[in-house]
C-alpha cells in the first residue's frame, strides 16, 4: 500500500495533463474529423500565457535612491512592481498568485486562437485527406513554437506556485500511515483537483446543455443534424475553441510542475496522441481514462525496483502499451465501431 499509493499519486498529475490534452484532441476528432497535430502547441501557448502574465504583473518601476549606495558606489536602485504602487497589498497578492490569475488571460486568448485557427485554416481542410490535415497542422505547430522561441528564448522559464501551495503535504498522515511515507507536492493536488473540475465541466457541458446535445448529435451524424436546419459548422467552431481553451488552461496550470519551454508542446503531443489511440478514437471517456491510466503506468515504470529488472522501461512503457492495445483491441479501450476507421 505505502509503496503503490505514492506511485499512483505521482502518475495522476501527469495523467491529468495527458487526459486534458487528449480530451481536446478527441473533441476535435469527433466533431470536425480533423487530426490536429497543433494541439500540443496550444498546450504550450497556454503555458506561455502564464509566463506573459507573470512578466506583465512583475513590471517594475525603478527609482534611484541617492541617500543609499550599493557596494559599487552607485546609487541604490529600488525596484517596486507597478502593481504594488497601484493596488497595494492586493497587487502583491496578484503577483504571488500569477499562475492561477493567468487563467483570466488564457481563457479568452486561447478561445480567440482556437476560433481563428479553425476559421482561418482548419476549415479549408475538412475535405482534404488525413495526410494533408496532419501535414498542415504539423507545419502550424512548428510555426507556433518557433514564434514563441523567438520571443521567449529557448530556455525553460520557471513559474513559481503560490507560496501557500508550494510546499508538500504529508498525505500519509491523513490516511493513518507513518509520517513521511507519502509526501505529495501540494500544487500537484491543486492540479489534480483543477483537471477533475475541467473534465467534469466539459462532460457536464456536453451532457446537460442544449448546445452540448447538438454537438453530440453532430458527432454521431453530422449530415442529419445539418439537414435539420442547425448550423453545425458554427457549433463546431466553438467546440474547436473550447478544445483550445482546455489545452491552454491545462498548460497554464502545469507551469509550476514543469517550467515551460518552446518544445514542451511536442513532447506532450506525441504522448497525447498515443493516449487518444489507446482510449479509442472519438471516445471522450476513453481519452480521459487512458490518460490517467498511462500516467500511472509511466509512474510505476519509473520505480527503481522495476527499472532494475527492465532497464529503460520508463522511457517506452506508454508506446509499448499502445502497441499492445492496438494489436489486441484495434479500436482502443472504448472506441466505437465506425469512428475514424480509415
Amino acid at each position: 500500500m505505502d509503496v503503490f499509493l505514492p506511485q499512483i499519486l505521482n502518475g495522476l498529475d501527469k495523467g491529468a495533463a495527458y487526459a486534458l490534452i487528449a480530451l481536446g484532441l478527441t473533441l476535435i476528432f469527433g466533431t470536425l474529423g480533423v487530426v490536429n497535430f497543433a494541439h500540443g502547441a496550444l498546450f504550450m501557448l497556454g503555458a506561455f500565457c502564464a509566463v506573459t502574465m507573470k512578466a506583465l504583473l512583475g513590471l517594475e518601476k525603478v527609482t534611484l535612491d541617492p541617500t543609499q549606495t550599493t557596494a559599487w558606489g552607485t546609487p541604490l536602485e529600488i525596484r517596486v512592481p507597478y502593481i504594488e504602487t497601484w493596488l497595494g497589498d492586493f497587487g502583491l497578492l496578484l503577483l504571488e498568485y500569477s499562475v492561477p490569475v493567468s487563467l483570466i488571460l488564457a481563457i479568452p486568448v486561447m478561445l480567440i486562437i482556437g476560433v481563428t485557427m479553425e476559421r482561418g485554416l482548419i476549415r479549408h481542410f475538412y475535405h482534404r485527406t488525413h495526410a494533408e490535415q496532419i501535414l498542415v497542422t504539423f507545419g502550424l505547430a512548428i510555426v507556433l513554437q518557433e514564434i514563441v522561441k523567438s520571443f521567449f528564448g529557448a530556455n525553460p522559464i520557471p513559474q513559481p506556485a503560490p507560496d501557500i501551495v508550494s510546499g508538500s503535504a504529508d498525505i500519509g498522515m491523513l490516511l493513518g500511515l507513518d509520517p513521511g511515507t507519502i509526501v505529495y507536492p501540494m500544487w500537484r493536488m491543486v492540479y489534480l483537483t483543477f483537471s477533475g473540475v475541467v473534465i467534469a465541466s466539459v462532460f457536464a457541458f456536453l451532457q446537460f446543455t442544449t448546445f452540448g446535445m447538438v454537438v453530440r448529435a453532430g458527432m454521431a451524424d453530422r449530415e442529419t443534424v445539418g439537414l435539420l436546419g442547425i448550423d453545425i459548422d458554427k457549433k463546431f467552431t466553438i467546440v474547436f475553441g473550447l478544445a483550445a481553451v482546455v489545452a491552454g488552461i491545462a498548460g497554464v496550470m502545469y507551469t509550476p510542475i514543469l517550467s515551460p519551454d518552446y518544445h514542451m508542446g511536442m513532447d506532450f503531443l506525441v504522448l497525447s496522441f498515443v493516449v487518444v489511440v489507446v482510449g479509442g478514437m472519438g471516445s471522450l471517456g476513453g481519452a480521459v481514462a487512458a490518460g490517467f491510466l498511462l500516467g500511472i503506468l509511466q509512474s510505476f515504470a519509473s520505480m527503481n525496483e522495476v527499472k532494475t529488472i527492465l532497464p529503460g522501461i520508463d522511457q517506452i512503457i506508454i508506446y509499448l502499451v499502445a502497441i499492445i492495445i492496438l494489436l489486441v483491441r484495434p479500436r482502443g479501450l472504448m472506441g466505437r465501431k465506425g469512428v475514424m476507421e480509415s
Partner: peptide, 25 residues
Amino acid sequence: RRSGIYFSILTLAFAQMSYNLAYSV
C-alpha cells in the same frame, strides 16, 4: 495493421521510442 492516421501515430510513436532508447538505455 492500421492505416490512415493510426499508421502515422504508430510510426511516430515507434520513432520517439527509438529516440528515447538511443538517448537513455
